[in-house]
């Protein structure tokens, strides 16, 4: 059989040997010159290849592209439906209430945990000391002494011992 001679190089030789190295092509050409079985195999292969090239191929029917387009439209519609269905499912009343409660809890938590500035007590004391004389000069403060005297007078009037 010829394939014992050419093996997988039969196809390359049937195509003219262009895919082979020059040395190998030369070697196989010499073999072909003296081997009628390989000559026949190359000729048969060339005939098969020529027939394959003329093989008719299936042309798509006129409805082919339209049918595909319809399927793609359906896919798009399904994808859109799925999106709205998910959104709708996510917005049911219990879930919505739960989400609002969670949001409220988060806001409350943030407010409670927010660090409040510590009043600077030492500054307040210093400020008070600075204005201490002023406070002592106020008539109101002086009147407070009068109020204490009034309490003593009221006690005397009630007959209590002083």
């Amino acid at each position: 059989m010829s394939e014992h001679h050419l093996g997988e190089e039969l196809l390359a030789m049937a195509e003219g040997g262009g895919a082979l190295s020059e040395a190998r092509r030369h070697e196989l050409h010499q073999h072909l010159g003296s081997c009628s079985a390989c000559q026949a195999a190359v000729a048969e292969t060339q005939r098969v290849l020529a027939m394959v090239e003329k093989l008719p191929s299936l042309e798509p029917s006129p409805a082919f592209a339209r049918a595909l387009s319809t399927r793609l439209d359906q896919l798009d519609a399904e994808a859109e439906d799925t999106f709205w269905a998910r959104l709708k499912a996510a917005l049911t009343l219990p879930r919505l209430a739960g989400a609002m409660a969670l949001a409220a809890a988060v806001v409350l938590g943030v407010l409670l945990l927010k660090p409040t500035p510590e009043p600077n007590e030492s500054l307040e004391v210093l400020e008070f000391a600075e204005h201490l004389e002023l406070y002592q000069d106020l008539e109101l403060l002086e009147d407070l002494d009068v109020l204490e005297d009034l309490e003593a007078i009221e006690a005397l009037e009630a007959g209590e011992p002083g």
């Binding site: 191929s57 299936l58 798509p60 595909l68 793609l72």
Partner: peptide
């Protein structure tokens, strides 16, 4: 699509089936 239809035809010779599978290919692409 023509070359893919031809390729599919190498596996599936019935024309309607070949077209259907070729559509499947392009749906996968989509």
């Amino acid at each position: 699509h023509r070359s893919i239809l031809r390729h599919v035809q190498r596996y599936v010779r019935e024309p309607g089936q070949a077209e259907e599978l070729t559509q499947d290919v392009f749906v996968r692409v989509y």
